[in-house]
Design a protein around this nucleic acid. Structure first.
Lengths: 246, 246
DNA sequence: CGAATGTTTGAGAGACGTCAACCGGTGTGG
DNA sequence: CCACACCGGTTGACGTCTCTCAAACATTCG
């Protein structure tokens, strides 16, 4: 049911930030609006990554900042012996190490890996920091996005603690719907959903078998539509209602 | 099994920050070391709060910052219909709205309530910010503490997703042991544990009945000792080993 | 002393986990 | 071009961890 991004031979991210549709929805949207070329100059690379690659290890102190142009990644916590817990998903427009951007020197409290083929724009952490620090209005989006991140993690924790499998799934779908909406990445009431049920199961703290079963009842109830790696929400209020169940 | 702090008629927090044993372990430890009297001058109040009082509501933009001198509180997420999820515990020396201190204008992503009788030292958010911003070394503890907070929430999320009831409890006990250790609040290998099994259950995402049963097996195995509102860890490595189980 | 709060314990139920098999699609190599 | 492995989705049978509901008991407090 899931579809991987097919790697092409050249990067899809535009050479100039001026042409980037995601620019106005990133954490550096202030800079992007006022001087997109300054942004392009600050960018140190465009990287293409294959699925299942570890980008950052917990404990590491990142000296680079990546913003995602294409594909999904996840923040996760390693528990040893092959066991781990996904903390949240990173989608196009997100900044990978957002939370540590203004905690220079502090080690990451999570690891990051790619889930699909991914394209990222890279910046030196120092340039990134000083760029955003130039104006208070450049910093505002950072506070908003960081706050939003804390909210998703907090929501997930509450979900795992209090909600049923179905409630958790609905909650996550609503969250992802909203995040894609903010980035103007919705198409026909849906968005790309390029991850396997196994990954989904891990993020929600349930097993893949149970995800599969729950998913099919949700399909039967027409709460969601999930085919060819695209998730469609035919009736958002209904899904939200389902998400508010324990 | 739990013991509430008994309210006395006058506050226990010292009038001068110079005499405060917790000062060197707070987020403003830099200021405390260099000019404790400046700190005392900046402090706007000493408040005493009764148990089960809501201190901040989610969505609120706090204009005050509180540091805990005595008692426990918790950050939690309200889910409606009386249901909620505790995100983490706040113990003496912690700063209540640490995470939003440098996100001025951003609404809180959690609520905060007292669990016991509590004493806090209050500061105006603005004075607090400018005080810590004076020197880079004043800011360093903020980054450390915030990073530590992210780590505990992240750990809890991984626990709820991946660990058994026993593993979660062990994990939480180790965390609290360590945090009290850092604050030099350990006495005879133990620390005050003034919360009910019901609260503990909520924080761990299990029911109070099951907490009770799990607790008694852990007592039987002498992993912990819990009486009169004091939690003692006779064998930390053993508890850690138990905590690393799924 | 009664009310309120917290702990302890029991019996029964259910949500979810575990393990295994099967199936279709896709990539790969001979 | 086919055989084969591999991955992800799907389904079944079965087990169990944990929940629910309930009651008894202890302790504190007004």
């Amino acid at each position: 049911m899931s579809v991987r991004n097919r790697p092409s031979n050249k990067a899809d991210a535009p050479l100039s930030c001026r042409d980037c549709a995601l620019g106005p929805r990133t954490v550096y949207r202030g800079v992007h609006r006022q001087s997109p070329d300054h942004l392009t100059a600050a960018r140190s690379c465009i990287n293409r990554l294959k699925p299942h690659r570890i980008v950052f290890h917990r404990g590491e102190v990142p000296d680079k900042v990546f913003t995602v142009y294409k594909g999904w990644l996840c923040r996760y916590r390693d528990l040893g012996r092959g066991r781990y817990q996904i903390l949240n998903f990173i989608i196009p427009g997100d900044t990978i190490t957002l939370s540590s951007m203004f905690m220079p020197g502090q080690p990451l409290s999570f690891s990051v890996k790619t889930l699909t083929d991914v394209e990222v724009c890279g910046f030196s952490a120092d340039t990134f920091r000083s760029m955003l620090s130039q104006k208070a209005e450049y910093l505002q989006p950072y506070h908003q996005d960081l706050s939003g991140y804390l909210d998703t993690v907090t929501t997930r924790l509450a979900d795992l603690g209090q909600r049923s499998a179905k409630g958790r799934m609905a909650q996550l779908f609503v969250e992802l719907y909203r995040r894609h909406q903010k980035r103007q990445l919705l198409r026909d009431g849906g968005f790309p959903f390029p991850i396997s049920q196994e990954i989904l199961a891990n993020a929600l703290g349930i097993t893949k078998s149970y995800v599969n079963r729950t998913l099919s009842t949700m399909r039967d109830e027409e709460l969601i539509l999930l085919e060819d790696g695209k998730l469609t929400v035919p009736d958002l209020p209904a899904l939200e209602k389902c998400a508010s169940i324990y």
